[in-house]
């Protein structure tokens, strides 16, 4: 825990500041994200939203973290903004009005984590097929689709395969 000039300029909007090896992480709440990003863009010259992604901490609560990575070309600086969501809500306000690039990034987060972005102009799947069921980056989704076959279980696994009758 330490303080940074960025956090001081944002004041109450930031609940916590973390600095690790000169990487600044500002933690805020979901209600204040849009305002934080707007202030950073207009007042602090962070004009690029490099990435927007999410982390699933299941079974911990708050379960999700939304991560916004901002870059300032003018100041040659990067900053990370985080906000946490509970597993039951799974929704956050959209920032596509602040950064246009957030449109597709939020669609990706929705696609893989099932987090809804309120006010998003076009919240559809973007990476997976449109008829895909579920959100595969959630922790309850198994990592592997198929059981890995060894000599002891090979016969049982292959009995369920499409080519089993051949």
């Amino acid at each position: 825990m330490s303080d940074s000039p960025l956090a001081q300029s944002l004041g109450d909007l930031i609940t916590e500041t973390r600095v690790f090896r000169d990487e600044v992480t500002l933690i805020t709440t979901r209600e204040r994200v849009v305002e934080v990003l707007t202030r950073l863009r207009d007042g602090e010259h962070f004009e690029v939203l490099t990435d927007l992604t999410a982390v699933d901490f299941h079974p911990a609560e708050p379960r999700f973290a939304l991560v916004y990575l901002l870059t300032s070309l003018q100041r040659n600086m990067r900053v990370r903004i985080k906000c946490f969501l509970n597993g039951s809500e799974r929704a956050a306000p959209t920032v596509s009005g602040v950064f246009a690039s957030a449109n597709w990034l939020e669609r990706e987060v929705y696609d893989l984590f099932g987090i809804h972005f309120e006010g998003h102009p076009d919240l559809r799947r973007i990476v997976l097929p449109n008829d895909y069921v579920g959100h595969p980056l959630l922790k309850e989704v198994p990592v592997q689709v198929e059981e890995v076959s060894f000599t002891f279980n090979r016969r049982r696994i292959e009995a369920g395969k499409i080519f089993a009758g051949e």
């Binding site: 997976l128 595969p136 592997q144 198929e146």
Partner: peptide, 16 residues
């Protein structure tokens, strides 16, 4: 057979 990509994104063998 899907190779190292045993995950949600890849078809496990084109014979499907």
């Amino acid at each position: 057979c899907g190779g190292v990509f045993n995950n949600y994104a890849v078809v496990q063998g084109v014979d499907e």
